[in-house]
Structure formats: C-alpha cells, structure tokens
Simulated assay, not measured.
Amino acid sequence: MGEKGKKFINEFKEFALKGNVLDLAIGVIIGGAFNKIVSSLVSDIIMPPIGAITGGVDFKDLKYILKPGVDGADAVTLNYGAFIQNVVDFLIIALSIFIFIKVISKLNRKKAEVKEEEIEVEEPKLTLEQELLTEIRDLLKKNNSGQI
C-alpha cells in the first residue's frame, strides 16, 4: 500500500472516531427505535378511531385498483391508504422532534442565563480617597469645558 493509501486510511480513522460521528450513529439508532414507537402509536392508537369515524375504514386497506388480477396474478394497485398513514407518521415524528428541540433550547437558555448571573461581578466600592478624586476630576472637566 502506497503513501496515499496510508494517508487515506489515517484520515478515515480520524473521521470515524470523532465524537460527532459516534453521536450521529447513536442518534440514528435511537431514531430507529423512536420510529417504531411512533409507527405503533399511529397504526394502533390514532388510526383506528379515525377509521371508526370514517365508517370502519382501515387506512391500510385503502387502495385504487389500476389493473385487476387475472389468472391468479395479483392486482396492480395504488395503496394511498398506506401513504396517508406514513404522512401521519411523519407529522407526528416532526411534531415530536420540534417539541423536543424547543424544550432543549429553553433549558439551554436558562443555563446560559444562570451562567451570566454567576459571571456578573459587583463593581468594587470606591474608597473615600477614590470618591474624592473622582469628584475633583469631574469638577475639573466641568470647569475646563466651560472655558473652551
């Protein structure tokens, strides 16, 4: 293996072992599990009542037959019910992520405000000498500005 090959492998190792890549991998795994939960929520909890309201229609079964099945062959169909269910899945996932990000952002803002409050330091109190010198300085500035 040449010098370029070794350099490429070292760059790949550096990239693959960075914290961001590992965080992304963990996020993808958790996202997959979250997707299963949301799909179950939609198909098992949300869609049945909607189907009952629409007359007992199961959205998974909604389809438009383009070509009927002939001689044991399956019919060619547009499964728009499954599409509707996937759209509802997406909307719930998007809403969940939006709410999660808002909560995290709010918590981060509160942490930042607390840190800023901790950083604020009271101005040191001036000694009597410093106060008198400040008054003298201000009087001199006032007198000099009147003469110009």
Rank of each mutant, 00 (worst) to 15 (best):
Q147K: 15
S43W: 09
I92Q: 00
V88D: 02
F15T: 07
Y64C: 05
L139E: 09
V70E: 06
I148K: 14
V114Y: 14
Q130V: 02
D71K: 15
A75W: 04
K36N: 14
I50N: 00
Q130M: 00
F90A: 09
E120W: 14
L132W: 14
I45T: 15
I92P: 12
L140C: 10
K67N: 10
F15I: 07
E122Q: 08
I37A: 12
F12G: 04
L66D: 03
G72M: 06
V114I: 14
E122A: 09
A94G: 04
K6D: 06
I53T: 09
V28W: 12
G27K: 07
I148T: 12
G146Q: 15
K106H: 11
G51S: 00
I9Q: 07
V88R: 07
G31N: 03
R137G: 11
E123I: 06
G72Y: 08
L24D: 14
K67I: 12
E117D: 14
E122K: 08
N143M: 15
N143Q: 15
A82W: 10
I97R: 09
V121Y: 02
I26Y: 11
A25K: 11
F59V: 01
K4V: 10
K142F: 02
L78R: 00
G27V: 03
E123M: 07
G55F: 01
K142R: 10
G72R: 07
I65C: 01
P68L: 08
D74V: 10
I84Q: 00
I84L: 06
E118Y: 12
S40A: 06
L133I: 10
I99H: 07
V76K: 01
E3F: 15
D74L: 09
S105R: 11
A75H: 00
I148N: 13
M47C: 00
A73I: 05
P124G: 12
P124S: 14
N20L: 09
A16L: 08
I101Q: 09
K7M: 10
D89P: 05
P48V: 03
D58Q: 03
L91H: 04
L91P: 06
I9P: 01
P68K: 04
K125A: 10
G27M: 02
I50A: 00
L66P: 04
F12R: 08
Y80K: 02
E11R: 10
T77H: 01
F90R: 08
L139T: 06
V103G: 00
K142C: 01
K102T: 12
E14M: 05
L132Q: 13
K106L: 11
T127E: 00
D23N: 15
L22K: 12
G27C: 06
K4F: 06
I9D: 05
K67A: 08
L24M: 15
A112T: 15
K115G: 03
I97Q: 07
N143F: 14
L133H: 05
A52M: 10
S43P: 04
T134F: 03
Q85A: 13
V88W: 00
A82Q: 13
S96F: 11
I50Q: 01
L107P: 05
M47R: 01
D138T: 08
K18V: 04
